[in-house]
Simulated assay, not measured.
Amino acid sequence: MRLVTFQFVDRQPRVGVLLGSAVIDLAAAAPLVFEDPPQPPWSLLDVLGGVPDGMGLDGAAEIVAAVIDQIGGVDDEHLVLQSGSLMIGGVEMLIPLDEARLLPPLPRPSSLRCFESSEQHMAALARLHGGGIPYFWYERPLFAFGNHAAMYGSEAYVPLPRTVAFDYELEVACVIGRSGRDISPEEAGDYIAGYLLLNDWTARDVQREELIAGFAFSKSKDAATSIGPWLATPDELQEYALDDGQFNLTLIARVNGVEQSRGNLRDLTYSFAQMIAIASEGCTLFPGDMIACGAIGGSLLEATNGQGPWLEPDDLVELEAGGLGILRNRIVA
């Protein structure tokens, strides 16, 4: 499934599933499966947390199957909703995608942990402050907490913060689907609700000062994080899965249509399973917690050897990966 948060005719945000060129409103379609479900709207956090009781992603999949059955068993990859919406009980159940506005899949994650799992990017950060990669990075993955309240979706305008060195970071994040503590790498896959593209916007001039001062990244990444356009459940990436738990998935970053970065998830030093194990060590993870892997294939920091030019107002930044779509944002003053 490709889970989204969307708005339709200026109503409250709702959680849905992409079905070809349409969006299923899960709460509106829930009566096809559940007796007396809670009234819409629902959020993605509601679904991950089991609204209605015990629903989760399995319940969402049941709703999708029921909708497909309701409209005649059409192939969900090739559904084209010609015009208007399909309704159930007076509420729009199936909405044309071009009439819906996609928001961040998780408008406010429970938390955001920003790992640095790429040796290439760690080396670039080390050069930024004139040092080397610390030896302990090779012993375990490291992370800093990000601002989980500053999320932007695909097609959203991202305001330029006070910086002269604004940069993108080409990343993928996973979202936790159920609570767990001291999770082993072998069990970690059972806790992943899905994956999405993530752009960890960064002020490199501010970040350099934080690194030299010995602080974790904070203000340099405080202004914005973009995610989306959808949350892909693990089965959506099955064709890219490798035996070691990594993914043979190519990621590309473009600025104003020109490719600036290219990487592959298989090149991460640490897998998402290892990141989850570290994040849950002595700490409980909850549904909706987000774990970002760090820049893959780089950013302008690597592309320009830290010299710029950096992002400016009106620049269009696109991140793309198979199964995860295109995350597109324009910078504004």
Rank of each mutant, 00 (worst) to 15 (best):
L57G: 04
D58H: 12
A61I: 02
G73E: 15
V74E: 15
D75H: 05
H78D: 15
H78C: 07
L79W: 08
V80P: 00
G84L: 12
I88Q: 15
G89I: 13
G90C: 08
G90R: 12
V91T: 11
V91Q: 14
V91W: 03
E92F: 02
M93T: 08
M93A: 12
L94S: 05
P96C: 07
D98I: 02
E99N: 05
E99Q: 15
A100W: 06
R101E: 15
L102V: 05
L103Y: 10
L106M: 10
S110K: 05
F115H: 06
F115P: 01
S117N: 11
H121V: 02
M122E: 00
M122W: 00
A124K: 00
L125A: 04
L125W: 04
A126V: 00
A126H: 00
H129I: 02
G131Y: 05
I133V: 15
I133T: 06
Y135C: 01
R140L: 09
P141A: 05
L142D: 02
F143M: 13
F145E: 15
N147R: 09
N147A: 13
G153R: 12
A156N: 13
V158D: 07
P159H: 09
P159F: 10
L160G: 00
L160H: 11
A165V: 02
F166V: 02
Y168S: 04
L170M: 06
E171F: 02
E171P: 02
V172G: 04
V172A: 13
C174Y: 05
I176E: 08
G177P: 04
R178I: 03
S179A: 15
S179D: 09
S179M: 13
G180H: 06
R181L: 08
P185Y: 14
E187Y: 01
E187F: 00
A188T: 13
D190N: 07
Y191R: 01
A193M: 05
